[in-house]
């Protein structure tokens, strides 16, 4: 007989309670995220977070895209750290990762972009999104020091479930930086509760069962999923994967999400547009309008075209 050694979080019926979270350490970084969500909550609207793959299509365009997104009024950024084997990503972000790596992009490229945004926007949260190995090779404490140096706010790791994240969580917490946990429609209640116990700055809710990539429609069960998560935890919920249009963003906002992340659809636009920065500015503006619940008339007042 093989002795049973169930993981406390992975087992459908956990035998032991989840690991207690490290005590929350409120600081400047935590504050920036919290203030961003508070601003949206006060207006009963949803935050808009564009995702930019560092080094895609190139460093100069990245900075121009970030500047355009700031002008469009985004509530924060996710900066993708390029990786050779992005197994949670669909075709668009696979290409973006490959192109960034061909151009020599690394973890430092992502940190530089975060620093660039911080210089222009002192109070806009910036979170890196990475696969685990580049962070592991840099070292958990060094990653935390590097994030602090550019005044980034935390990191999301696509292939690091809470069971494996304790060491990185501790390294980040020492500098008041956030490790953002992810939940998916397949996460059962015990896992949602375990994430709640981590007292996260926000929770990344994966909107669909699958890989990243723009979709025609949002999942029919997204509302049920968010309701299930909301029943167990009070942290802000930020929704990503598949969100592609202002209509999608409006719907996610109506479902009560604190924020929404748009990634592949933006990368698609950057990839195919002859003037990626102008196209991105218009597109992101239309998403911000949808997230913040303003009408398109407000958009026209700003002299910005509505994205279709």
């Amino acid at each position: 007989m093989i002795p049973l050694a169930p993981l406390s979080l992975a087992s459908p019926t956990p035998a032991s309670p989840p690991t207690p979270a490290a005590p929350p350490t409120p600081g400047q970084a935590d504050g920036r995220l919290a203030r961003s969500f508070e601003r949206r909550r006060a207006g009963a609207t949803c935050g808009l977070f564009p995702y930019l793959t560092a080094g895609f299509p190139d460093v100069a365009t990245d900075r121009a895209l970030a500047a355009a997104a700031l002008e469009a009024g985004v509530d924060g950024f996710e900066i993708g750290v390029p990786f050779s084997d992005p197994l949670a990503d669909g075709a668009t972000l696979q290409r973006a990762n490959a192109r960034a790596l061909e151009g020599g992009a690394t973890l430092d490229t992502a940190l530089d972009l975060a620093g660039y945004i911080r210089q222009r926007a002192p109070d806009t949260p910036v979170v890196l999104m990475s696969y685990y190995n580049p962070l592991l090779q840099r070292g958990h404490r060094q990653v935390a020091a590097d994030l602090e140096a550019v005044q980034a706010d935390g990191v999301i790791v696509a292939d690091l479930p809470p069971e494996e994240g304790a060491s990185l969580h501790q390294g980040l917490a020492e500098r008041s930086l956030a490790l953002i946990p992810m939940l998916a429609p397949t996460s059962h209640t015990a896992r949602v509760r375990a994430v709640a116990a981590l007292d996260p700055a926000f929770v990344y809710c994966v909107a669909l069962v699958g890989v990243t990539g723009a979709r025609q429609d949002l999942s029919q069960t997204l509302g049920d999923f968010l309701g299930r998560v909301r029943a167990e935890l009070s942290a802000p919920l930020v929704v990503g994967f598949g969100v592609a249009t202002p209509e999608h963003v409006r719907r996610v906002a109506q479902l009560g999400a604190a924020g929404v992340i748009v990634a592949s659809a933006l990368a698609d636009l950057v990839e195919r547009s002859p003037e990626p920065v102008a196209a991105a500015r218009a597109y992101v503006s239309s998403l911000v309008v949808a997230a913040h619940g303003r009408s398109s008339d407000d958009l026209k007042d700003q002299g910005l075209p509505e994205h279709r």
């Binding site: 069971e163 494996e164 992810m182 429609p185 996460s187 059962h188 896992r191 994966v206």
Partner: peptide, 10 residues
């Protein structure tokens, strides 16, 4: 270990 996206863990 299990270094996988959350969707796969269950």
């Amino acid at each position: 270990g299990q270094y996988v996206p959350e969707t796969i863990v269950p």
